[in-house]
Write a protein that binds this DNA or RNA. Structure first.
Lengths: 212, 212
DNA sequence: GTAGCAAGCAAGTACCTACTTGCTTGCATC
DNA sequence: GATGCAAGCAAGTAGGTACTTGCTTGCTAC
């Protein structure tokens, strides 16, 4: 029974914190949002700081981080799928991440926990592309690390800032993963597969050209 | 005489706000930071909200936004120079931008003013690359808008998050503009000029590869 | 010199903040 | 039915917040 209340408080804390940040997330607000007496909050977590720390751990660290698979049979498909998953993950935590990063100087430990996931996700992409390169599918001259870092930044930017400054994201939400992947692949010189074209012309399903 | 004090308050407000955000920027803190009586602050600006709004306008809107020139004689050089300028500009306002964007939902007008500059900067880059494309220097198939949006996101990410999560930015600060530009140019298919290579091996000047 | 005015200073108002204390309620177990 | 315990409730503490008021200081212009 205590477990259910604990989770309700944590969920409420996540909502309030995502909207108002650490300073704005008052214990009173969290308590009313959780439909729980304010005292209960202190009794179960000790203090506001401990509560929000616990909230960040359960909310961020517990969520699965999307990793890219090592299956390079259809890199375009796998990359697009992965990109969409990462974007979805980041968008789901957008408000939380934004606040946590903005308050990183004041609460550095919180920021560490929040960006640990995406970091390792990026690393898995580096390995993926290097694997492709070893198979001769990507340009050996390409600066993979820089391209991946830019790719990750693009996904971060899209997920975190699209709603607040939509004019700098010309592509609609659904088309974003495909476009990012296409552009990314051009950057690392991956031409092994047919690049899906921007125009709406019919594409032959299953076509696989190896023009190298 | 009042002018000097006014500016001192605005500068202090900028520092305090950049560090603690809107809620954390107390009038007391700003006053002591400006070495001014707290009452003077209310007498010259009316309220905390008006003060911080004035601060954002003078601090952000007044700073020159780096635009890319229309000179396409040496695109690599021009792009690199521009990229370095934008990064410098963004880094100079990193804390401010970070806080303002994070609080965008609560104070949307402030966020608008803050990201107006970089937005038009991005637009100037689109025009620049389209100009290159018209001259036949860039790939006509390239998705310029997406590439530019990713490039802008990369600069934003670098400027705003490098200090808080340095591990996702493998390239050192000085080398970043060159690397971003090189990767960006690969993405838009700009091969007209010699791409500076990452490795230190001798490069043959004038080599022009069009591997398409 | 004196009038005006910008700024400092001390104190106060009304409210919000995290957090505590003492007591009551309801439920589950023996 | 008695015991224990988790949660609610009301009230209070100590401090911070934006903002105001009344008065003093110091400088500048006539």
């Amino acid at each position: 029974m205590s477990e259910e209340i604990r989770n309700r408080i944590l969920a409420a804390a996540a909502r309030v914190y995502a909207q108002y940040g650490f300073r704005g997330a008052t214990t009173r607000l969290i308590a009313t949002e959780a439909d729980v007496n304010e005292v209960t909050l202190f009794r179960t977590f000790g203090s506001k700081a401990e509560l929000l720390q616990a909230m960040l751990q359960t909310q961020v660290a517990a969520t699965a981080v999307p990793m890219i698979s090592s299956d390079t049979s259809d890199p375009v498909k796998e990359l697009t799928r992965w990109c969409a998953t990462v974007l979805e993950y980041l968008r789901g935590h957008a408000h939380l991440i934004r606040k946590t990063i903005a308050e990183a100087e004041e609460r550095p430990d919180a920021a560490c926990a929040a960006c640990e996931g995406p970091n390792s996700a990026g690393h898995s992409l580096v390995l993926f592309v290097e694997h492709l390169r070893d198979e001769g599918l990507a340009d050996p001259d390409a600066d993979v690390e820089t391209a991946v870092s830019m790719f990750m930044s693009a996904m971060f930017g899209d997920a975190l800032y699209r709603d607040v400054m939509p004019h700098v994201f010309p592509q609609p939400v659904e088309a974003a993963p495909e476009k990012y992947v296409t552009t990314f692949m051009r950057a690392v010189g991956l031409r092994a597969t047919v690049l899906p074209d921007r125009s709406r012309q019919a594409r032959v399903a299953g076509t696989r050209r190896r023009s190298r």
